[in-house]
Computed example of a mutant assay.
Amino acid sequence: MAEGQEKPKRLYQVWKGSNRFFCRGRLIFGPDVSSLITTIILIGGPAVSFCIKVNHTINVNKKDGKDSNYWYIVLFVAALLTCLDILFLLMTASRDPGIIPRNTKPPESEEGFDMNTPSMEWINDRTPHLRLPKTKEVIVNGHPVNVKYCDTCMLYRPPRASHCSICNNCVQKFDHHCPWVGQCIGLRNYRFFYMFISTSTILCLYVFGFSWVHIAQNKEGILKAMRKDILSDVLIVYCFITVWFVGGLTIFHFYLICTNQTTYENFRYRYDKKENPYHKGIGRNLVEVFLSKIPPSMNNFRAVVCEDDMVAEAPSADHVRTSKEKIDIEMGDKFSESNGISLPEILQNLHYDDLEGNSKDKERSVDFDIHPSPFVFELGKRDELVIAHETENIHQV
């Protein structure tokens, strides 16, 4: 490298989101990664204490000449559940949840649309001459869905995506930001998140049950045994309280999986009065979450980037829209159609990549399957919207 020449930077070093990277960009966490340590302590502390208690029981049985094979199995299962629980937690917290790459610049001014209607708004102060529709309607499995323009990432979000204010990223199939995991839960880590909370539930029930077994084995009576066995008492109370939280969460997310909803959609009553376009039946919904191939990350955080390619800064707080404008509407708004407003050419000429199954038919509408690709502005190519995901299925109605 020539003297005075700066060492090229990698994408994770210039990333504008709030994520924290480790192992030179191989691991990506949320900004509140420190909460992960607290969660590990809350899981590991009681589990290790229980294993110590079981080991003590084995030693006592050996001295009394009793068979300890039963407690060896109990100890092994407890250790296995603990390791799996922490493993699923780390797999959830340390991977890209489905972050959609930002555009480096807003759309070019020639691609703008400058009709003054409620469905249009200024994008930001850097392009005061450019206006774009706030929402764009697409068809998902035969149902109209509105995709929203993200001022921060400067792209049209794909259906089911949302911008996380904590991580400052648009995430595919955004479910929620979990403070216990310290990471967004989305398309690429939801499976591991559910396995984490379900394993936590099983571990709580397991420790709770065998803690009672420890007490019941005392021949002096339950009350006297509880006064002597303080550790088992603490574990029983702790697991009883915890299982209501993680158990309820497990049941709730199992319901979401069976109905093919996200937490974000459920909390906004998205499908209470409208048919869910993503629901395929319980069996296929379960297969989609647990048995389908996880799409590869859309970001190569270790890729070398040039200064000119760095992602633009987010708009300042002085230009934040009103609360009504900031509501994340993805279904329903048809203002532009009802008023006969034609969309600009950049929004009409959509090009779709990686079509699977049938060939293109221009006279038929495009129908997105489970995870539609994001509409991303490629600034070097005018009048073009890139569908940026290799594994997303697009078929014709």
Rank of each mutant, 00 (worst) to 15 (best):
G4H: 08
P8K: 00
R10A: 05
Q13R: 01
V14L: 00
N19L: 03
F29Y: 07
G30V: 02
T38I: 15
A47E: 05
F50I: 00
V54M: 02
V54F: 01
N55L: 15
H56G: 09
N59S: 12
N59Q: 14
K62R: 10
K62N: 11
K63P: 01
K66W: 02
V77T: 10
L84H: 04
T92P: 08
A93Y: 01
I100T: 14
P101T: 08
E111P: 07
F113L: 02
W122A: 09
D125W: 06
R131L: 09
K134M: 13
T135K: 12
N141M: 11
M154L: 15
L155P: 06
P159D: 05
S165N: 11
N168A: 10
C178W: 02
P179N: 08
W180I: 09
Q183Y: 04
N189G: 02
R191S: 04
S200M: 12
T201M: 15
I202W: 14
L205E: 08
G221Q: 03
L223E: 06
A225G: 04
D229L: 05
D229Y: 05
S232V: 09
L235W: 00
I236H: 00
W244N: 06
H253G: 06
Q261T: 13
P277T: 02
H279M: 13
E288F: 10
S292K: 12
S292I: 06
N299P: 01
A303S: 07
A303D: 04
M310S: 04
A312G: 15
P315K: 03
A317K: 12
H319K: 13
V320R: 07
D328M: 05
E330N: 04
M331W: 08
L343H: 00
H351D: 14
N358I: 14
S359I: 15
S359C: 10
R364I: 08
F368A: 03
D369E: 13
P374N: 02
V376R: 10
N393T: 15
